[in-house]
Design a protein around this nucleic acid. Structure first.
Lengths: 282, 282, 282
DNA sequence: ATAGGTTTTGTCAAGCTTTTGTACAT
DNA sequence: ATGTACAAAAGCTTGACAAAACCTAT
């Protein structure tokens, strides 16, 4: 996993706590248990950074160091605040192209693609879907928001077919127009080194088959919001699954009995991307 | 076959590489294998000129002579400048994401948005449409191409809602999925100072009406490939046309009797953008 | 595949890492495992370039070299997010024309024009200026960077005079050659719907006056790095300010007593563009 | 917080080899 | 035209060095 190994100086720089104090906290409270390099240097993980931040936070609250340390050791992760995501939401719901782009830029500058997807995009898509079901979202706003987000995500997607990693073919099922979730999934895969061939919304199963033949992917993902889209083409999909490792994704894959050798990806895009990557490693 | 037989002096003059060096390259790397005259003189073909040019190109890129030679021998044409629009076409039809983006970038760096749209994108869309009608285009390729171009065009569209110009609302008719032409039209308008509110594919007429109410545009354009999309919603559209200056666009607007006060935009996107701008100036 | 074989000098040039250091990284961490030529020279692949970039990226993040190396070696190079702005900087400072253009394209796809200007171009210009003052930047280096950026910005500027928005006339003061800041300013205005008439470096005040007469702009901006450029032509400028809303821009406008009715624009280009647009809206 | 020792890491040098453009003799 | 020679530029290996960063213990 996260083997990011910081030395004490960098940890100090990132947390604003002197190396001496960091060592003291280790000795006295066992706050951190860094691994050591061959030569004996302490090597810290990214999680340790959080832990030190928590420690400082508790100290500032007035707790004694010993207490602060046990608290920090127990609950290292404090929620990250992402105010810009509210700004994005607000701009999208008022047709404010400029504001939405600025907010997106701000998020992009501060977060990794992964975090952006997980913390902002995916929740927003969920939210939109729910408002939609409850009849609250204006269709006009949904269209505006989708077009804008699609543009930004496709911007991030640029060049995602290049490189050396395994190839994944992504397509929406026939009739399916909602491709934002699939885009997010593609980006998450890309961040893990995959190469993406993206066919977009409403792709006939035969086209997926053609593409599979042409590029020989490690995985193929067909996505839909509505399970009917899968049922309607069950036979064809089964056929495709004989030529490639086939996955069904999106909310529509939830109730589906995928059938032998077909994998259902029903979780959030980033999670499923992680899972698929683990699977491919094996 | 191109039997144009150059002697080494002429080859040297054409390529700017000294005869000695040409011979050295032949001896050391086998870069060229000229036929010999009866008297033993080297006779080079036109292709050899390309090969030497490629060699020089690779050298300029920083490759070592030995490497440059093998590269030049393998792909003599690689150094030849393929017109970027052909390169784009070729890359799109072979699922080459990287190549397509590079070609698009090259075009972008050399052409104005307008020229890019008029000379490259619009012709390409036409071509695709025709191949489609004749059943020649693979659907898979069309999807891949559309997704990629959509991404790039939406990338250019960024921030097109800001500023000072008049506002135009753009939407595809209900059921209509082809938004690339509409996107191109929006970009052409933007290049003329308009602000764009873009609703994207398959937009219910009621949503268009909502948006018109919210942003009060100078023009509203609804686009479709199939005229039926307009006929099916004729009444609603007439209703909308009472609140805004309404235009119908795309191939589908061709045979339509638009009705009083409704403008049909049937020409190519850039042309129509120009026309609308003239109209707005008046 | 890509067997492009670079020798160590070229790899060094492309990555900005000295050959000695590259060899040290190989020996100590096994970062790269180049194939060898018959004579024993190291031959690197394109993938190795990515790997070195990743290594540098991790180093910049504060990781120890040993850790950075294992991270760079493990991750598929494409998965490491190297901020394109760093890539641009690196390419510019190593005279890597191709790399710089690619980085610029990547930035363009990812960011809005505004963000690109504010977060990348303007800071880079500052940085260049400072290095220049401290005598660290070579003239060649500055020329190369300026020429490349000017080309790209002018590429973005294409067609910025057409359309419907208000007109702004932009010119560098007599003797002033630095127009990149002014270009950035023009682009920021364009992104807000303005039409730009751009006169470029070293423009006689009389020419500005002529242009003002011809196009009747909403604003006219004259820019200089050195305040003396303004002082020397104070009288003429005052004269021009009677025919148009005149602004003085650039670092040189900072200490200037602009005089009645003359506006000084001393902030960063994007900010000032926003300000002017607000002013025009009123 | 300091002292005294260790590890890590970028840089340099010496001496020798390979690569490659050019020159020269046949 | 051919083949050989040559010299500058670029690389290779080994070994060493020193500054910065870290360690432990007091």
């Amino acid at each position: 996993m996260e083997t990011a190994a910081l030395r004490i100086g960098e940890l100090s720089r990132r947390t604003g706590v002197s190396p001496e104090l960091l060592r003291a906290w280790e000795r006295r409270y066992g706050l951190l248990q860094p691994v050591r390099s061959a030569g004996g240097l302490r090597l810290y993980s990214a999680r340790d950074v959080d832990r030190v931040h928590a420690m400082r936070h508790h100290l500032a609250e007035g707790f004694a160091a010993a207490e602060a340390a046990t608290m920090a050791a127990r609950a290292p992760a404090a929620a990250v605040e992402i105010p810009a995501s509210d700004a994005l939401r607000a701009a999208l719901s008022s047709f404010d192209d400029e504001g939405a782009n600025a907010a997106f830029d701000a998020l992009l500058a501060r977060l990794s693609t992964d975090t952006l997807l997980r913390e902002v995009i995916v929740p927003y898509l969920h939210e939109l879907g729910e408002r939609w079901e409850r009849g609250e979202a204006s269709i006009a706003q949904e269209h505006f928001s989708s077009a804008l987000l699609r543009g930004r995500l496709l911007g991030l997607a640029r060049g995602w077919g290049r490189g050396l990693g395994p190839v994944a073919v992504l397509a929406c099922a026939p009739g399916e127009q909602h491709d934002l979730g699939l885009l997010a999934f593609g980006l998450a895969l890309r961040a893990r080194g995959w190469r993406i061939v993206y066919l977009g919304p409403d792709t006939p199963v035969a086209s997926v088959a053609d593409t599979v033949q042409a590029v020989d992917p490690a995985f193929t993902v067909v996505s839909a919001v509505d399970p009917k889209a899968f049922r309607r083409h069950a036979a064809e999909l089964r056929e495709v699954s004989r030529q490639t490792r086939l996955c069904l994704g999106g909310p529509g894959a939830d109730g589906i009995d995928a059938g032998a050798g077909i994998l259902a990806l029903t979780g959030d895009p980033v999670l499923e991307a992680e899972r698929l990557t683990e699977l491919a490693r094996a």
